[in-house]
Each structure stands twice: as C-alpha cells, then as structure tokens.
Design a protein around this nucleic acid. Structure first.
Lengths: 344, 344
DNA sequence: CTGAAAGCGCTTACAG
DNA sequence: CTGAAAGCGCTTACAG
C-alpha cells in the first residue's frame, strides 16, 4: 500500500472550457456536439482546450437538458445463457448502428422491486426491451397507459397489447418430433422449461400434439420439467435413469438442458445417439461445437435481438402501431440423433 | 397492427406531486428519499399521490443535483465467457449489498473510442472496474491524474500504480504441471491465451519454468496460442493432429479453450484421459459438469469480482491507498487427467 | 458565426 | 416539521 499525494482535480465543465478559450458556453457546446455554425479556427481552438483539459460532457446534465438519454435498457433473466447473450448481441448491434447505447439488467442478480419499477416506467432509458419472464402483470397496465416505448421478446398473449418478437415455437417443435418419429422413436422424453415464458408452454403443447398426430399416446412419465439450465437437464435424465426405464430419445426444451442430458447420459456410460438420441431447441453456438453435434431447432437469436431493437427505436421515434413479429425456426440435424434402439 | 389511441402522458415530476398534494417540492423530495423531518400524516398523503400518479424520480436530474450516480461501471472484454459472467456476478453481489447499481460494458460489441474515453474519465458512473485487457496505456495517465476511482482485475505491472486484484497464476500453473509430470507426461502441449492480459504471460512463463525445473526441454512445437475461446482450443488441437504428432497431455490457458481441446479430441475418436490428458485454468462452473470432469486450476471467480467491488467502493468513499491484492489458486483434479500413455 | 437567457427536475443548504 | 432560493451542467430557442 502506498499513499496518494495527488489531489482530486475537479472535472472540467463546459464553463471551464469556455473561460479558458474565451468563447461562450454555447460555442463549446456546438463544438462538443459537432454541430455547424462555428468558425473553423474557433472550433479548432476549442477542441484543443477540450483535449488538454480532458473534458467530457456530464451525461446527467446532458440527459436532463435534452429530455432523453439516447440509451435503452434490456431486461433479461440472466446473461450467462447463450440464448440471452446472443440476443443481447443482436440488440447491441442494432443500437450501436443507431448511436444508442445499451444497458443490460438481469433479474437473476436480484433487481429489487423498486428499481425494477423505475426501469420500466422511469426515465433511466428511452425505452426497454424485455425477455418475457421479466414482465410482471402489474406493470403492463402502466406501460400501456404511459406509452413508454417497449418491446417484448416472446409470444405475448393477445390481451397484452405490447409490441413483440416471437418465433414459430410450435412448428419448430413439431418438425423435431417428426424427425424423431421417422427415426423410429416411440418413447420420446420431453424436458419442458418453466411454464412461463409462453414459448415453453407452446413447445410442450407441440410435443403433445405431435404424439397425437402420430397416433402415439402421451405418457406422463415421459415429461419432466426443469429451469432451463444445463444441470436441470442432467438432473431430469438422472431421474429417468433412477426410475429404471429411459426414453429412446430425449427432447429438451432448450439447448442448455440438452447438454445437461448429454452430460448425464455420458456419465452413465451411454452412447449418443446409439443408446439415446438427444434434441435441443435454440441452436446456440455451442450446439455445433460439441461432439456429437446437437440436433436442435434453430432460432435466429441475434436477429431476434436486432429486430427487437429496431422495433423499439421506431417506437421511440414516434411509431404507434403495435407489431407482432414472428420469425421462422429450422430443424438442424446433427449427430446426436439416430435410429431408435431396438428394445429387446 | 393496430393503432394506439392513447396519447402520451408526460412523466409526473416532483412539482406535479407537490401541487396535487398541496405541499412544497422539498417535502416530496424528503418523502421520496425516505428522509426524516416529515409528519407521518403528510408523508402518507404524499406517498399516496406518488403511487397514484406513478411518479418515479428522474435519474438524470437526481444525479446532476447530487453530483454522483450511485452506480459503477464494469468493463469486460465480453460477457459470454463463464469467467467474465462469474466475475460480474461477484461484483453485482457486492454492489447490491451497498445499494449501488452496476452497468456492464463489453469491448467485444465495439465500444467506440470516444465512448470508452467517457466511461473511464467521465461521470457516467462513480467508478470503474476493468478486466485488464480493457485498459489502454493512454488512459492510465489520466486515471492517475484525475484520481477517478478505479480497480483493475489482473496482474497490474508495477509501474501502473492502480489498485488491482490478482491470483497466483504462476503457482497455479506450476501445480498443474507438476501433477502432469508426476503422471508420467513428458510431451505436454500448452495453449496460451493472448499475451496481454498479463495473467496469460505468467501462465506461459510458469509452463516453461516447470519444464526446466523437471529437467525437460521446452520444445516450440508444443506451444500454441489462441484467443481464449472454445473454438480456438479446438483449432490448436486439430493443428497438432494434422502435424501428425500429439502431446500426451494438453494444458490450455483457460477452461474454455480446454473444452475446445476436448471437442477436437473426441471428434478425432480419441479418449480422455486414456489417449490424451487435458487440463484447464479457471474452474468455471461447467468444468465440473462435463464428462469426464475437467482437471483445472481453480480461481475464486466470484470472490475476485466481490473484492474488486469492495476495493472500488472504499476508494469512492475516500480511501487513497493503492492495494495490490493476490488471491490463491488451487489445483482441482478431475477425470480428464490420467497416466501418460506409453508411446510404442 | 456567436452569445445571453431560461429551463430540464432534482438536491443542498439555509431559514423559519 | 416545512418551504423558498440557488445551483448542479448542460441544451433549446431566440437574438443579434
């Protein structure tokens, strides 16, 4: 430890720069914001002073005066899952193209009630993008009344008239199920994510619909549910192993859980896909990196984020329509699925 | 698409609430900030109005008046790697305990030069925590002169007199190497991360030192380098495979790369640890979830973040010493390492 | 091309 | 317990 001798130097303000250059604050402001109406010579003189003093605009003062922040907030359940970080990346790309900045809030680190309320209705940002589970009922009404710009990522129930971005969850799930059924699988396990957000409910519904369609009966023991994490997928699989009978194929509601399924199967000495086929949903980057590759339902994660951001910016700029966008999914077949194992 | 009929309702201000309640702005401010000096009856009346109108304080105005933001910014190269998200989680925990909020910036989504400068020297937050690669030389001087509170996570060169948090990179690497050497490994490949941050340089140095210490010679062909990502680890491994000779053990500079090594080995039909042993560094959560488990050098990721936050808060509150904290690492032996394969 | 004035919505410091 | 005044550092709108 050594003690500092340097004293705090106060941050230079627009007034400091103006005084030292001998111009008005207005002129400094024009230079800082790169606006026209300043003689070239003056501009250069001011710029030099700015550099020398290390002046940076105080964002609080600027936001207050402008009445906007030029930033939007993104509310996610977490940021460590690939789904979330890919979506966030898409949002970031669209925003930086529009010179907006992005502030990410995750509910897993526990945003307190009050802070949450502020983010949604307050003026910390010009708008908000939420992945659905982040949206409590009680706030929807306010969002609607106050017309704070916002976009929801997830199937949004029709009675919640908020702009939203969705994917074809039902059709994607159906395609994967048909793939498994065509491979001869009859005992297909399904690990559902939490019932809300609705995308998980839709996938579970599609799983049941596809069994019906194929003339197979849905047995309760082949459905489990987890909290979307890798370890939840492993836990469900270990339950099946402990119960003594395993599905010939396991379809997890998202890729993270599917990887957990693979963890547990491999730990039990089983081969994929020879012993058990595994399917996921999302097509996160890692799905193609593991061995065998994970068969999964692709959704355009970055595009979802990008479109959400574009929608939000449009609203901030005055658009009043309430779009409900649905993006396509696509079944990606990799090495984790194969013909059903003949049961003796 | 349906058109909105509701008109924008302006955000209520402290003045709105004051007028509707018949008190002064000062009284409303006291209530909002939960400060003493307001009669119970008055307080309740104001609170009711606040709820009815959905008032939330304008953060820009508040920050400007207070001269601080009650938030800190965390600068990371990315947020998708487990290392980063674990560190971020630790920071978040410590901050929320102190009622500070956290804003995360990642350099991978391309913070532009100017914005970067603002974050470091500007007043968007009361302080900043940086994972080292985020700290360009040119800014260090300013940080020192201006005495903006900051903390660096990484071994910080002694000439950079900034508070920092480190781990025992050298000792941790040595422990892992000794483990491999004890298992009979002589051809040990090392995949180094990028040379800056310095932790990677330290690990590479320790790799060489340990070979020397064991009387083995360091051969250039057994050292490769990658950009810390899973796919980089896989790529390096494929290079060795293509070159026709493989190390009996591969030590990757971080866990993400180690998992990439495993991807590539498995894709080539090799068994771990029978054919090749694999070691990582970090002990991210996934290291214990894969099969076989990854032998790795544990570092206390969340604690790193937490200590960094505590250090920063201390500085914000006026502490002027410049601590250089070093946290311990620990070798965690799991299934990915075993006796060296006898070469015929 | 340049500047003086007013105001953004809060809080701090001072009076009563 | 309550309030009137000044000011935080900018920008917008208006003059010259």
């Amino acid at each position: 430890m050594q003690n500092s001798e340097v004293k705090d130097i106060p941050n230079p303000t627009i007034a400091t720069v103006a005084k030292s250059t001998g111009v008005s604050m207005m002129t400094v402001s024009r230079v800082v914001n790169n606006k026209p109406g300043v003689a070239q010579a003056t501009r250069e003189r001011v710029l030099q002073a700015i550099n020398e003093m290390g002046y940076t605009a105080n964002p609080a003062a600027r936001n207050l005066a402008r009445g906007r922040t030029n930033s939007i907030s993104l509310m996610l359940p977490n940021i460590w899952s690939s789904y979330m970080s890919e979506v966030a990346r898409g949002v970031g790309a669209a925003l930086s193209a529009a010179s907006y900045s992005l502030v990410i809030y995750t509910t897993d680190v526990g945003i307190e009630r009050e802070h949450y309320h502020n983010l949604l209705l307050g003026q910390s940002a010009d708008g908000v993008i939420m992945v659905a589970p982040c949206l409590p009922d009680e706030h929807v009404k306010h969002l609607l009344n106050r017309r704070r710009p916002c976009v929801v990522i997830d199937p949004c129930p029709s009675d919640r008239a908020l702009p939203s971005i969705n994917v074809t969850n039902w059709a994607g799930t159906l395609a994967a199920m048909e793939h498994l059924i065509a491979l001869g699988h009859r005992r297909i396990g399904f690990i559902s994510g939490v019932p809300y957000p609705l995308c998980n409910a839709e996938r579970l519904r599609a799983y049941r619909d596809s069994l019906l369609k194929a003339g197979l009966k849905a047995e309760a023991r082949w459905v489990k549910s987890g909290d979307q994490t890798r370890s939840a997928g492993a836990a469900c699989t270990r339950e099946w192993l402990a119960e003594g009978e395993l599905p010939t194929a396991i379809f997890a509601g998202n890729d993270d859980m599917a990887m957990g399924v693979i963890d547990a199967l491999m730990a039990a000495g089983l081969k994929i896909p020879e012993d058990v086929s595994v399917v996921g949903f999302d097509d996160v980057p890692m799905a193609s990196q593991i061995h065998p590759g994970l068969t999964t339902v692709h959704q355009p994660l970055q595009e979802i984020g990008q479109r959400a951001a574009e929608l939000l910016l449009a609203q901030i700029n005055g658009q009043t329509s309430i779009p409900f966008i649905e993006l396509p999914t696509e079944l990606i077949i990799r090495g984790s699925t194969g013909p059903a194992r003949k049961t003796p």
